[in-house]
Amino acid sequence: MPYQFTVSPDFSPDHLSGWYIFNTWLQKQLGEAVHLEMYDCFQTQKAVIESNGIDLIYANPFDAAMLVRKKGFRPLARPVGVSDEAIIAVNAESLIYDVADLSSGIKIAVTDDPDIRLMGMIMLEAGDLNLNNTIIISCDAYILVAKQLLKGNADVGVFLAEAYDGLSNIVKSKLRVIVRSEISVIHHGLMIGPKLAHRKMDILELLVGMKNNDKGQDVLKSLGFRAWDKVEDEEMEFMIDLMDALSV
């Protein structure tokens, strides 16, 4: 029975093939069978985690607390220089220039990406906005959030900054950023579950060493990463504490 690997469903579509390349590389290096299963929504993935069906995960920070505290996962590594930041954007022709200009009843286009949704709502909170006095338009992808703004269906959109920056210049020219988060300590990371824990040091060594050889660098490039950095247990605990503080 192969070990089960999954990736947070908010992965960039540009890097879908990169995760399969990474998994092939990992199996070869590790000498273990690892099956990569990509889920298209957080709820489905969460149900599999709950039933102990995952051994390795590139996890959204929002899920880190559950993985560590309920499922016995431990952190392995994070991509160097990559953190999760959120953007609040409006249609370029909108009269909204500040969160304080917004009022209750507005329509907010968001994806189900949980940490970005949380960060977005925190930024909107400065305008006395919350889930009880706004209308949420759920979208399957960030390009659809942009579309809701362009069509005038939504007043504001919440984006993963990386996804917003990756929109085409034509789309971006029709949108305007009103807030960009600068949090820098919230990030995705690879985490390892109890069944695979005995290979933790081997996997960590492989990950950290990827940047030192041509093949490893090619795999990193396919993921859009420069290198992996080790994440200490306490560093992960700190991020979980931070997410806890933001969630209340």
Binding site: I122, E125, G127, L242, A245
Partner: peptide, 12 residues
């Protein structure tokens, strides 16, 4: 203890 501060609304 961890303390996290964010922007408050003017109403608050």
């Amino acid at each position: 203890y961890t303390s996290v501060r964010r922007k408050p609304s003017r109403t608050k």
